[in-house]
Amino acid sequence: MAKFRVVTPAGASFTVAGGGYALESEALTPLGAEIVEAPTDEAGFIAAAKNADAIYAKGIRMSKQIIDSLENCKVITLGSVGVDSVDVKAATVRGIPVTNIPDTFIEEVADHAMALLLAGFRRVVVQDRMARDGRWAEGRPALLKIPRLAGQTLGFISFGRVARAVARRAAPFGLRMVAYDPFIEETLLSEYGVLPATLSEVLSQSDFVSMHAPARPEVHQMLGEQHFRQMKPSAIFINTGRGTTVDEEAMIKALQEGWIAHAALDVLYKEPPSHNNPLLSMDNVTLSAHVASASARFDEARKRRVGYELSLVLSGLWPMSCVNPSVLQNTNLRRWQPIGLDRGPNS
């Protein structure tokens, strides 16, 4: 019989090929922990997870009802950056740490954000269609209306890990950079060659507005009609964060009426979008299907990190990435410091 029981919804995963939990189990098996799949409906999951030692949350909404039903849970672990699928407040009240993976695929998302910036700016999708449709002569005149990239302003809304990685990529292109993030010290911004700005300044000054705010209640539909009206008519809006941070109807109106020139989006308010979403048929929109974090490394690195986070807490140690760290002060978990690949955490 396993010493620890980790419960996870059945069949819900980002796995590209294959399945199973071999990668997560690399850190869990030595502890005598096993991952057990449970039904994905709320009632079935509650019944299966009631006595779980830990929850590997994927493909299910971890509601207050589910969290309140957990009698022995030591940690809820996510294999993603976003934690909007978990009622973190309910978990905090119950004293359950919630962990995520905020740093495993930062480089991929930053690459994708930069790709969307360049594709939107140089109208790559439209240029591709012109070349394929025999409209060869239309390509050059269309781009003659677009200024040189160097000297343009890139504005960040939120300046977390991804935005910082984008800033490193953008600097060699000669972009001036500004950022709005009331939770970041100005000295950190200056390390990346980025100037601090208010939200209004970012919107009104930027030729590119890159949205990086996380999916949290306080930033739900953070950008609305009044914000898109502040942007330049030539501006390009980029979103590799979360679709719910934007009032999508207002953004569509901005694109249709020319308040902004283009949107380059990896995320939408509803995913996948309905077939009649206007964004799908607009020439001034570049889309990808919430794939910014994907790479050959993505799945293995994510799943190993999940296993490691679970193993730390089940071993009585603090996790690496806790989104509600206040709960750790009231647990018996011990602090640790990484001291080398050959030894692992030290209490």
Rank of each mutant, 00 (worst) to 15 (best):
T8P: 07
G11L: 06
A12S: 09
V16K: 11
V16N: 09
A17V: 13
G19F: 05
A22I: 01
E24M: 12
S25E: 14
E26V: 12
A27I: 00
T40R: 15
A43E: 14
A48Y: 09
A49W: 03
K50Y: 03
A52D: 04
D53Q: 10
K58P: 00
K58S: 11
G59Q: 07
I60Y: 03
R61Y: 13
I66P: 13
I66F: 11
L70D: 06
N72E: 04
C73W: 10
C73Y: 05
K74H: 04
V75R: 12
T77P: 08
G82R: 09
D84L: 04
D87N: 15
A91T: 03
P97Y: 05
P97I: 06
A113V: 11
L116A: 09
L117H: 01
L118A: 10
G120R: 06
G120S: 02
R123M: 13
Q152C: 14
Q152E: 13
S158C: 10
S158W: 04
S158D: 08
S158A: 15
F159P: 10
F159R: 13
A165N: 04
R169W: 07
R176L: 11
E186G: 04
T187M: 04
P217Q: 02
F228T: 06
R229C: 03
F237K: 13
I238T: 00
E248S: 04
A261Y: 11
D266P: 10
L268E: 12
E271T: 00
H275Y: 05
P278E: 08
N284R: 03
L287Q: 03
S293I: 00
R304M: 00
L312P: 01
C322T: 07
N324A: 02
Q329V: 01
N330L: 00
R334P: 00
I339M: 07
L341R: 14
R343W: 08
S347D: 13
